[in-house]
Amino acid sequence: MLNQYFFDSFLIPGLIIIAQILAVVVPVLICVAFLVYSERKVLALIQLRRGPNIVGPFGLLQSFADALKLLTKENIIPSGSNKFVFLLAPIITMVLSLAGWAVIPFAPGLVVSDINVGIMYLFAVSSLGVYGVIMAGWASNSKYPFLGALRSAAQMVSYEVSIGFVIITVLLCVGSLNLTKIVEAQQTVWFAIPLLPMFVIFFISALAETNRLPFDLPEDESTLVAGFFTEYSSSSFVLFFLAEYASMILMSSMTVILFMGGWLPPFDIYPLNVVPGIVWFTLKVIFILFLFIWVRATFPRYRYDQLMRLGWKVFLPFSLLWVVVTSGFLVIFDKLPS
């Protein structure tokens, strides 16, 4: 029966795939809404203010109110802009920040696609993120967005190099590019402890990669108005905004998987290992996100040449050195994973 065949081999697998995608994307978007709220709240507490407290209990619904407000506004497209690329840029940014979630293992077996080159896929997706920014800056046909785009192109390419070396260091200790295996390799000790300097470098590079303070030079509001999204309004602005926070959560998850043992409990003892893995994973991601916000409230913005100096003259040689040291250590003590 052709009908039965169609039903079994296309419709049901297709529906399962769509359900899996929704099961990941919808919680991520809800998390984004509450991340924005918590960022405003934490910043407010650090600066001795009260933060959002009007919409809903404790202001919890503030992000949804903001999103509704933005979506109902008019989407203005500058007349001098390249319309197609102008509208494509936020879409690409948003899609890329969600695409990475396909390979993130939340708990043992709880992953949409458990591919062999998981970490390479994440690295590739995060390196594509720069295109949304460049296209937005170029298509706006105005000087501030263009300057923002140029800054972000150089910045993201520079910091990817050191992220690559950090990932290589971790891979040397794991012997696989599969994210599940990377987490399982941390049963005895989280990589954040033996590879502490790499953990710090990865976190700082993640800040630069997601264009967060103190490295938010692409949007640098005190000199470039709003950087690459100066000309954007309404729903296309919302997409950029959501994408920034979604990729923040993605980079935090990557940090947790590479260095903080993913879903593993801190110690494998009774009350801790009963807690489901996804709870540990979420708690660790929240911790890293808190660091992101804390850094934002604490440090002043880097000047552009300082940013480049840090990337090329400090992180790159140091992480290269650590790759050599780690591999040398593993070879001498015969600890190389087979």
Partner: peptide
């Protein structure tokens, strides 16, 4: 291919 050619 994506990392080297597209990303850089």
């Amino acid at each position: 291919l994506v990392v080297v050619y597209v990303g850089a």
